[in-house]
Simulated assay, not measured.
Amino acid sequence: MTFPIVRHRRLRQTAAIRSLVRETVLTVDDLIQPIFVTYGTGVKNEITSMPGIYNLSLDMLEAEVKEIVDLGIKAVLLFGIPETKDSVGSSAFAEDGIVQEATRRIKAMYPDLLVVADTCLCEFTDHGHCGMVHTFERDGHIHGEVLNDESLELLVKTAVSQAKAGADIIAPSNMMDGFVQAIRAGLDEAGFQNVPIMSYSVKYSSAFYGPFRDAADSAPQFGDRKAYQMDSANVREALREAETDVLEGADMLMVKPALAYMDVIRIIKDQFDLPLVAYNVSGEYSMVKAAAMQGWIDEKAIVMEMLTGMKRAGADIIITYFSKDVARWLKESK
Rank of each mutant, 00 (worst) to 15 (best):
S87H: 06
S87R: 09
V88Q: 08
V88W: 01
V88I: 14
G89W: 02
G89P: 00
G89I: 11
G89Y: 03
S90V: 05
S90E: 07
S91G: 05
S91Y: 10
S91R: 13
S91Q: 13
S91W: 03
A92G: 09
F93R: 13
F93P: 00
A94K: 09
E95Y: 09
E95M: 09
D96N: 15
D96Q: 14
I98N: 02
V99S: 08
V99G: 07
V99Y: 00
Q100I: 07
Q100R: 07
Q100H: 09
Q100L: 04
E101W: 00
E101L: 15
A102N: 04
T103M: 11
T103Q: 10
T103K: 09
R104D: 06
R104F: 01
R105N: 13
R105T: 09
I106F: 11
I106K: 13
I106V: 15
K107S: 13
K107G: 12
A108Y: 04
M109Y: 11
M109E: 08
M109A: 14
M109R: 06
M109T: 01
M109D: 06
M109H: 05
Y110D: 10
Y110K: 10
P111K: 08
P111H: 05
P111R: 06
P111W: 05
D112L: 12
D112M: 10
L113T: 04
L113D: 07
L114R: 07
L114S: 12
L114M: 13
L114N: 05
V115K: 06
V115Q: 11
V116E: 04
V116W: 00
V116K: 03
V116G: 00
D118H: 07
D118Q: 11
D118C: 07
T119V: 15
C120V: 12
C120G: 15
C120N: 13
C122P: 00
E123Q: 15
E123W: 01
F124V: 11
F124C: 13
F124M: 14
D126R: 03
D126P: 00
D126T: 03
D126E: 11
H127S: 10
H127T: 05
G128T: 00
G128L: 02
